[in-house]
Design a binder for these strands. Structure first.
Lengths: 121, 121, 121, 121
DNA sequence: GTGGTCTAGACCACC
DNA sequence: GTGGTCTAGACCACT
């Protein structure tokens, strides 16, 4: 279940956003399944509704959920959106790596960054 | 030489800003060397002075140049600028790698990107 | 309410920026609450929209608000914002105290300033 | 004598500037005494002349030295300039302390900042 | 001459 | 409607 950790370094809206995204990606929330309304979620977690709305807004613009006026928000099951986002990110990473190489950054430092991320996970 | 590419997706002020930052970091522009005045640069590139000034302003607040009223703008040359920029880039890369990990991208794909860059060089 | 003082030595965009930052930090503007659009604020204060936008742009790059194209600008409410601002101010104070020490200002004068502020409160 | 420390966290121009200011304030360099030209100083310290020029420029605008075209730069012996600068800085410090008090910063933190500065000196 | 601020008005992309 | 970029032209303070 979704739980807020106030000691987390991430802001609350990121915790909500990431948790829901995780549930959608893993299939815990099925495609086109309804997710709680902004008000329900805000009441359940005792959080400002604006914060929930921000999480939903980002999930929608990232293509993980879609909302239907008067009906609510629903999980989006389109795997192609994820793949498209992955390509964008890999391209951005390429450009950053290029500039890092250009200012003589040892390759090991870049590898280190990647390893650190995948170790924590 | 600094040249504007109107087909570039980046706005003009970002192109100017990034090109100058590059020249300062690589030492092409010497420490405390005077850079062209806002009006000179605007005339040379056939761009509105306001647009140049925005580029200069962002470079100043990022610590790459400093401006003196009535005198001009100067490069903040310093060996530490390179490591500062490197830190910026590594942080950006970290954030991108984090999101890639979140959407279940195999670690090997990230390593591949890094390897490709350093192989070409 | 936010009001412009034309006799203030600070430029207009700084007055707007500082006033909004204050409201966000103190919680007068709630987390993720929508703030007036660039055009609304410009109309209300009878100021050019470009000037308002500059204030918003600086607030965004400093992490106090976030803007979404086509939707509006929103406060980045977070308890950590206060401690962030406190760190900024303490750093500024440190630099000023350093220069004061450099010109042989007696330590007692600096302590006096601090005491005066906290006595009034 | 003035010596550069490359391990110092301060940039070179600040080291030069602060060292000269110190010598002027303490009277080691007498009022209206000529200080080395930009080129002489740059040659002696094996530093980019631009960097020396920046140090001199800041000392001039801060009122510690004055330059006469074709003759060189000279120490400024006017104590009133220092006193004026001190007042400016104390005023700035007052404003910062006011905002710090406003966001419930414990008075001890401000005192701490002052103490740290005067301990190092 | 220099940097810096401000206005007025246009255009774009996104929602 | 929204934020964002760009232009044209004015004015100020400082050197």
């Amino acid at each position: 279940m979704l739980r807020i950790n106030y000691r987390d370094v991430r802001p609350i809206y990121e915790q909500v956003r990431d948790a829901l995204r995780e549930q959608i990606i893993t299939g815990e929330i099925e495609p086109d399944e309804k997710i709680p309304s902004v008000r329900e979620m805000a009441a359940k977690l005792v959080i400002n509704p604006n914060t929930i709305q921000r999480a939903y807004r980002e999930l929608e613009s990232a293509g993980y959920i879609y909302s239907v006026k008067g009906k609510g928000s629903f999980a989006c099951g389109d795997a192609r959106l994820v793949s498209k986002r992955r390509d964008e990110l890999l391209l951005q990473m390429k450009e950053i790596a290029l500039e890092l190489e250009h200012i003589d950054t040892p390759k090991e430092q870049l590898i280190q960054v990647v390893n650190d991320i995948y170790k924590e996970a």
